[in-house]
Simulated assay, not measured.
Amino acid sequence: MTPEDRFPGPEHPDSGPRHQPDLDVLPFGTYYEPEPTGYAEAAYESETYSGYGGARYLEQHWPAAGHPHDVGHPHAAQTEHGGYEPTLPDRPSPAHQNDDPPTIELGPPLPEPGLPYHPYPAPAPNEPPGPLYVVGDVHGYLDELLAELRHQGLIDAEGHWAAGRSRIWFLGDFTDRGPDGIGVIDLVMQLAAEAAAAGGYCRALMGNHELLFLGAARYGDEPVQSTAGTASFLAAWRLNGGQQHDLDRLETHHISWLSRLPAIALEEGHLLLHSDTTAYLEYGDSIAEVNDAVHHLLADEGVDEWWDCFRRFTKRFAFRGDGGPTAAHELLDTYGGARIVHGHSPIPYLTGAVHADDGAPPHIPGPYVYADELAVAMDGGVTMEGRLLVARLPI
């Protein structure tokens, strides 16, 4: 487990610092660096391009020396065993938590007042679908997301859909750690409507941080049972980079949209997951069964079942090492597809390039292909000064 996901549970018996994975267990893999499109190559080096932005979140909250709770985590207390257990802060009051959320119509975008609206032409009979793209973990870095989508030619200078019948899948983790998680969600919802009007689509998967964010909003500081001691969704969310201003701005239509996201999808032979784990197998033998099970859990089950789902989908690194290809085949044989595309685990941790000797940010030229080319990692580590990745499939 990397130090970026922290919560008391079986996979985290100690809340102390996490060590980098040993290099000798890392798989052989390669970077994929696509040809530049849209912007000139110099855009990567310009001051206005923020694809390598970041808040040095790991360094600020989990420094290499000293205990991680020495910085930035006031809601923690030392136990008699020397570990740390989050204290239960005051519970916020999410607005309209029990209201029936409105239905979100995916209609065409509204034009500016006074300007004519020119819809995209309807697709011709037997016209093939547009190109397929995937987007890695965003974690609230709205400016980086806008810059990369513009770089790929998928949105215009005003942030509106410009990709015609293209298709985009976001792999989850919209919020936490970065400055504007709600802004990211609003953008993806806007693009979903605009893409549908253009004959394409913009869709998204549910990540473990969606489960955590929704759990913090719904259950607050209600205790959950953990082998490391009683904790709460709200405490775990804060320890994992939750931003109070995101929770304050969360509305019923956000909750409705996030709660209905699928956990897994299959597109043109690509099995799309958020987490690099085999825990999906515990929720069903088909994609439909997994998604139905997660949606049923979010709608009807209690706090402990919700917590267990979050805990399972926070596991990682199933496809690295000698057993990685076997684990990948297990998922592919069950759900279909020829290759897994996932987010969740930052590429710098998969490759061991978390910190360069000269202190420079990790260099992430593109998606990382590994596990005998059965897996593609898409989390470029934007929270640790890596890169927010958008890539066209197939790679």
Rank of each mutant, 00 (worst) to 15 (best):
Y368S: 02
G337P: 06
E222Y: 01
D180C: 12
P365V: 03
P129K: 09
G29K: 01
N291I: 13
V134S: 07
L205D: 00
D186T: 01
I104M: 09
A318T: 01
W306Y: 05
P121F: 00
M206V: 08
P346W: 02
G140T: 04
H296W: 08
A198I: 08
Y335F: 13
E45H: 14
G29Y: 00
V71W: 06
P262S: 09
F313C: 10
H254M: 14
L281R: 09
Y133M: 14
P361F: 01
W169S: 05
F7L: 07
G51W: 02
D90V: 15
T230K: 00
G51A: 06
H69D: 00
D137S: 09
E41P: 13
D292K: 11
P119M: 09
P63G: 10
E222D: 06
P129C: 06
L350W: 04
D186C: 02
T230L: 04
A55F: 15
A318S: 05
G9T: 15
G215W: 11
G336N: 07
H329Y: 00
H160Q: 10
Y120A: 12
L247W: 07
G38W: 10
E373M: 10
K315E: 04
T30C: 09
A64R: 14
S46I: 04
Q190N: 12
G380D: 02
H295S: 13
L239W: 11
H81N: 06
H344W: 03
G321A: 03
L212M: 15
D143P: 06
E33K: 14
R91Y: 08
R218N: 11
D173H: 04
E4H: 14
G82Y: 09
Y280W: 09
E282Y: 11
E148L: 06
A55R: 15
D357E: 15
T252C: 08
F7H: 07
L281K: 02
T252N: 08
I395F: 14
D180N: 14
A196Y: 02
D304C: 10
T383G: 03
A55H: 14
L261H: 01
